[in-house]
C-alpha cells in the first residue's frame, strides 16, 4: 500500500498495510510504548469493544498477547482473534474461554497487555515508574475481577496516600465496563470532550510513525 519496501513482519499476505499489531510496533521500535500511547490504545480499544458489544453477537475474548491488538491507519484500535485460537475453543477453556468471558475479564486482560507494552524490554528486577493516574488505571483494570466493586476498601486501606490520591482512587474504584475505562481516559485530558479526536490522533500517529520507521529501516537495509 505504501509502495516501498517489504511489509511489516506478520502482515497477512496480500492486501494493503492498513493495520499493525501492538506487538509489531514494539518489535520495530524495540522499546515500550509511551504513556500517552497507552492511554490512547486503552481508549480506542475499549471504544471498538464497546461498539462490538452493541452491534454484533461477536463473543468476548480475553486479550492474550499484544499481537491481538491492532492499530489501524485511521487511528482505530481493534481486538483480533488470536492467531491460533484453538486453545480458546477447547471445551476445557472454561473460565478463560471467550464464550464465557465477561466484560470485566476482557478489561483485566487488556490492562495486563497494556502494562506489558509499557514494560517491554525491561529486566525482571526493573520496574518502570508510571505516572500515578496511569498506574492506577492499569492497576484497577487488571484487578477488576477480584475487586468486583466491594473490595475497593482493600486498595484504599493499602495505600495511605494523600487526600487527592484518595479522591483519584474513588474516581476509578469501579471499573466494570469499557465505558468506565473510556471515561477515565477522557478524564486524563484537560478537556474531556476532546478525547475521541485526541486519542484517535495519537493512535493514527503511532501507526504512521511506525510505518515511517519501517520504511526507513528497510531503505537502510
Amino acid at each position: 500500500a505504501d509502495g516501498e519496501g517489504p511489509r511489516v513482519p506478520g502482515e497477512a499476505a496480500g492486501g494493503s498495510q492498513d493495520e499493525l499489531s501492538l506487538e509489531e510496533i514494539l518489535l520495530l521500535y524495540n522499546q515500550p510504548i509511551n504513556e500517552e500511547q497507552a492511554w490512547a490504545v486503552c481508549y480506542q480499544c475499549c471504544g471498538s469493544l464497546r461498539s462490538a458489544v452493541t452491534s454484533s453477537s461477536q463473543p468476548r475474548r480475553r486479550v492474550r498477547s499484544a499481537a491481538q491488538i491492532r492499530v489501524w491507519r485511521d487511528g482505530a484500535v481493534t481486538l483480533a482473534a488470536p492467531a491460533s485460537d484453538t486453545e480458546e475453543r477447547t471445551p476445557a477453556a472454561g473460565k478463560s474461554g471467550y464464550s464465557h468471558c465477561t466484560e470485566t475479564e476482557v478489561i483485566e486482560s487488556l490492562g495486563i497487555i497494556i502494562y506489558k507494552a509499557l514494560d517491554y524490554g525491561l529486566k525482571e528486577n526493573e520496574e518502570r515508574e508510571l505516572s500515578p493516574p496511569l498506574e492506577q488505571l492499569i492497576d484497577h483494570m487488571a484487578n477488576t475481577v477480584e475487586a468486583d466493586g466491594s473490595n475497593d476498601e482493600g486498595y484504599e486501606a493499602a495505600d495511605e496516600g494523600l487526600e487527592d490520591e484518595e479522591d483519584e482512587k474513588k474516581k476509578i474504584s469501579a471499573i466494570r465496563s469499557y465505558r468506565d475505562v473510556m471515561k477515565l481516559c477522557a478524564a486524563h485530558l484537560s478537556t474531556e470532550s476532546e478525547a475521541p479526536n485526541h486519542y484517535q490522533a495519537v493512535c493514527r500517529a503511532l501507526f504512521a510513525e511506525t510505518m515511517e520507521l519501517h520504511t526507513f529501516l528497510t531503505k537502510i537495509k
Binding site: 522499546q31 509511551n34 495486563i112 492497576d139
Partner: peptide, 24 residues
C-alpha cells in the same frame, strides 16, 4: 519522534509489576 522517556526503579514486591506478574 516516537521516543519513550521513562524512569526505571527497582522492582518492588508490592508494585504493579509484581501484581501483574502474579496474574500471568
Amino acid at each position: 519522534k516516537g521516543k519513550s522517556l521513562y524512569k526505571i526503579k527497582p522492582r518492588h514486591d508490592s508494585g504493579i509489576k509484581a501484581k501483574i506478574s502474579m496474574k500471568t
